[in-house]
Nucleic acid binder design. Sequence first.
RNA 1: GCCGCCGUAGCUCAGUGGUAGAGCGCAUCCUUGGUAAGGCUGAGGUCCAGGGUUCGAGUCCCUGCGGUGGCACCA
Length: 861
Amino acid sequence: MARYNPKETEPKWRAAWDAAKVFEAGPPAPGKPKYYVLEMFPYPSGRLHMGHVRNYALGDVIARFKRARGFNVLHPMGWDAFGLPAENAAMERGVDPKAWTYDNIARMRSELKELGLSIDWSREFATCDLAYYGQQQAWFLELFKTGLVYRKEGVVNWDPVDQTVLANEQVVDGRGWRSGAVVEKRKLNQWFLRITDYANDLADSLATLDRWPDKVRTMQENWIGRSKGLRFKFNFSDPAPPDFAEGLEVYTTRPDTLYGASFVGVAPDHPLAEQIAAQNPAAAEFIAACRKGGASQAEIDTAEKIGFDTGLTVAHPFDPSWRLPVWIANFILMDYGTGAIFACPAHDQRDLDFARKYGLAVKPVVLPPGEDPATFEVGDEAYTGPGRIFNSQDLDGLDVETAKAAAIAKIEAQDQGQGATVFRLRDWGVARQRGWGCPIPVVHCPACGVVPLPASALPVALPDDLEFGKPGNALERHPTWKHTACPTCGAAALRETDTLDTFVDSSWYFARFTNPDSASPIDKAAADYWLPVDQYVGGIEHAVLHLLYARFVTKALADQGMLSAKEPFAGLFTQGMVTHETYRRQSGEWVEPKDLELYSEGQTRRARLIATGEPLVVGDIEKMSKSKKNTVAPEEIFEVYGVDAARLFVLSDSPPERDTQWSNAGVEGAWRFVNRVWAEVESQPAGPYETGPDDPAADAVRRGSHRLIKAMTEAIESFRFNSGIARLYEFLNLMKEHKAQGASSALLAARAEALSAFARLIAPFTPHLAEECWVQLGQSGLVVDAPWPDFDPALTQDAVVTLPVQVNGKRRGEIQAPAGAEPAEVEKMVLDDPEITRRLEGLTIRKVIVVKDRIVNIVAA
RNA sequence: GCCGCCGUAGCUCAGUGGUAGAGCGCAUCCUUGGUAAGGCUGAGGUCCAGGGUUCGAGUCCCUGCGGUGGCACCA
């Protein structure tokens, strides 16, 4: 009996799949529904890590399963290839970013191919291919024509380490998402995509994405931050300051509490505050103090509310004789709403904190249910719940929602403002001051201004001789590239040297995959056939960034008539990370898993250095990272255990959406499973088998097999791959119970049928092993071309079932009954059973509950 | 502060209102021509705590505790 040898079998089957081109997506075919499976494409860093293995193994299970179920499957792969790491490598090692990137792609491609993924490699492309980014320039110019692309000077987030601008989405806790550097504010001329035009649609259609995790939808909803309210102007009581003759505009979501107004506040960088500061040194000093506050989240959290009374007053819109003081307050944000608010301390915690500190009025106007208007008071906690409006003249007695509408109507009737929807979402700044990216296809002409290039001038290719030896924009530095002629007037002009954010590159690649050779950016017929992606798989870290941009670009391109899909990804699955225990020496140094051995002392797990035997501290389980030295290189695992065992293990241990812990013991368990499967298949003698009388063992194997088919089908459809794999382990135990040696002919036949199904069931997880088993079992063709096995519902349960019998909910015995026995019949059997009746002596039976094929419960007293 | 998720065997985790499960680890034994191994058998459970719904709760509801993730002066 030969041991299973993945080093021999795995390359053999990959070659067989390649030769048969089995994974190339077919043309539309009647009766063969399409299914588009896509994993987030990788950045070509040069090395495959375990996170990639899990991500692509997950997607591959779906793709192979859907193929077996008769779908026309598209499962492509490409490279998110522009971006800073290439420039950093260029700077550190003096290599050419383009060569570095394509070398990495070559290496990672061969590693990914080694994984045995069912990918249609004929569609592969990289975003740094001129054929791709040239088409991106083409649709960028289409959006330019419609006004969705625009340029403005604005305050931007500047990453001082990467020396580039970042979008709001790319600033996390005041730091750059890649570099971790504290982000600075700078005023720059910038290119923007008008994502805010789609804010309502992006928020509304989240409801249609019913195969997305709620968590991601909530995160996008929060990010878009739609709020409905009222925008209106306060008139100044006394002569208005210059520039404010029209009044001071504020935004509120609580117009119902207008009669509880206590003061009006503006942000420290509000134009009014700046105007006052210009003449008032105390105000200027206050504003400077506000700016000194740190930008980090912790500092913002703990920052005390401080204010400055401007001495100005405004008139309450419903009672012009009522004067409200105008304060400058540090808790008001210039970039939300209008940068100015009216404060109702009784019903807003921030306003209340401020009012208590400065002794401003606190007048409740919403009466909580059950409270007495004569005695209700607000202490240190604002009341933000529902209730009846009081102390509010004509609004009295209304509920909160009705009062909001009434107050808005009133303001609108006075022509002082109107109902408004405000978003937290900002337009997407897409220009980056980088050389290794997609050039923005416009020129700057001294006479004509900003001129978009005509289609005939595309693509705008990057030069091959960029110098990346120092920080900054290599494209800007290039001696000749930017010098060109204006396409309108022919005069000397300069090319735009900014390139596009790499999130633009990844915002439409899924559409390009539907026909990567199209002469237009998107082949509409192909896109309309394949889109939306039926199942998208990737990390939760892109919940807002990539997934929001891709949704927006899809909608924008659809509005240009370039495709018809309303959403890019109908189903989204966010997988967890691969983690590993950490180990340190007593001195605190991290130790790599391969340098240590684990052992047990009783129930305690311990670790020691292999080289010296030095005891180690077993630390926390953390995401694999180089800094903690808790990484495991996939290729080393493939070398020892084969690809199938590695794939199986990353899918077996945890539900796919949760983190999974890599361990050597775990992959060894998977490796043993691979060998046991092979041993089981090899021990099965070749058919045909003699006919013989049926036998209970044959029946057990048959029923077990049909139960397994049902369970696996359901497990894959509901992303419970780990549960499905657990069932594979259980079924293998059953097969070992009923082994081939000495088996009856009936059992041999049942085993043969079960093993044939088993080979197809393991194929999505361990595809090479499945092929090897398929051949060994005497089946023809490839298992990837075999249909998914069906199950007979009648065979998914035992002929005779054991029913536990409870008395008053406590287990008191059991009976054997034929499967599917009617409750009345079972009840009779139970009440005839001497063991049960003995338990019921002296009790009166109130009720007998029979759950078919599950349990019997007798309620007695 | 707000919104999630998690808490089940020593560890990592399944578990669909109806008999408490898997892998690894641990123990015993067998095998030593499957051997850088393989196999048999077994022990091990306050299903985080408390309350509720139910004939019946690991599962549904409420409260609390612990862990973890996301969002957050967003008017």
